[in-house]
Design a protein around this nucleic acid. Structure first.
Length: 113
DNA sequence: CAAGTGACGTAGA
DNA sequence: GTCTACGCCACTT
């Protein structure tokens, strides 16, 4: 790290994604205040890997429930997610209806209904 | 300051 | 279902 940037905010948010859930780039961008800054999120993740040992980057996917990485990265991400209980369909996609994170909601720390 | 870049998103063909 | 084109924002050089 060189100088603190909004990237830190991205990482912090990704760290809050619960196990077994996934979020899309655009979704994260909106929570951070950039309605259309999905690319910036991807950029942050791209720059990550370096010092992001504790950032669950594999929980971030695109709006189609697909992985935008190359074959190698996709394979790794898939394994990491499957290890958390996330399942993929034949097309290698994730069921967003089941695994999409709703966002940093209060019930995250509250009791269930 | 300007240009280039990027793991996206959406719309249209 | 696929592919193409443009727009968006933040970071680096």
């Amino acid at each position: 790290m060189t100088t603190p940037t909004n990237f830190d905010r991205i990482y912090a948010l990704i760290r809050r994604i619960p196990i077994g859930k996934v979020a899309s780039y655009g979704q994260i961008a909106r929570w951070l205040g950039w309605p259309r800054g999905a690319r910036t999120v991807g950029w942050a993740l791209r720059a990550l890997t370096d010092d992001a040992g504790d950032v669950p980057w594999h929980r971030v996917i695109n709006s189609q429930g697909r992985i935008s990485l190359d074959a190698e990265g996709t394979r790794i991400q898939r394994e990491l997610l499957e290890a958390e209980g996330v399942t993929f369909d034949s097309a290698g996609r994730i069921d967003l209806k089941t695994y999409a994170w709703v966002g940093p909601a209060p019930w995250e720390t509250a009791d269930e209904p």
